[in-house]
């Protein structure tokens, strides 16, 4: 099996596991950990794509809330200082990408004429 096929197989399994977890979470878990979700059903299908994609995070948060390990003070600490780091890294990435793109642009070699290096038979006979 090629590398690409292996990656796609892993993706398939990731999504299958996510589908199973979304069933468990949306039918059982969500009512237990969020009172605002009780009796609210129409919005639940909207949550499925995210559970398929980030189910390990869903499991972790579900566990923390079920186990009563939630630390309330952490809810009010936005990572504002990280924005500077993120902005610098993004700017560096954009700059690098643009540099690589622009510096590697080729022009069609219209002025290079075909060159006959040797007549037939000269080189290989």
């Amino acid at each position: 099996m090629s590398g690409a096929e292996t990656i796609l197989l892993l993706v398939r399994w990731w999504l299958i596991i996510g589908a199973m977890i979304s069933v468990a979470f949306l039918f059982i878990g969500i009512d237990r950990i969020d009172e605002d979700a009780r009796g609210a059903y129409i919005f639940r299908p909207l949550l499925v794509p995210a559970i398929l994609l980030i189910w390990p995070l869903v499991l972790w948060r579900w566990y923390v809330l079920e186990a009563g390990r939630e630390i309330w003070s952490k809810h009010y600490r936005p990572p504002r200082a990280s924005h500077l780091v993120a902005a610098i890294l993004m700017a560096a990435g954009i700059g690098t990408a643009l540099f690589l793109g622009l510096s590697n642009r080729q022009t069609w070699p219209a002025d290079i004429a075909p060159e006959r290096l040797s007549a037939p038979g000269e080189a290989n006979e």
Partner: peptide, 22 residues
Amino acid sequence: MILSATSHDFWMKFLTPPVWKR
């Protein structure tokens, strides 16, 4: 896809705003 799928308010409350923001 991850960002749009987690854009509903439920995700902010469930993940907590700092985790959601990260």
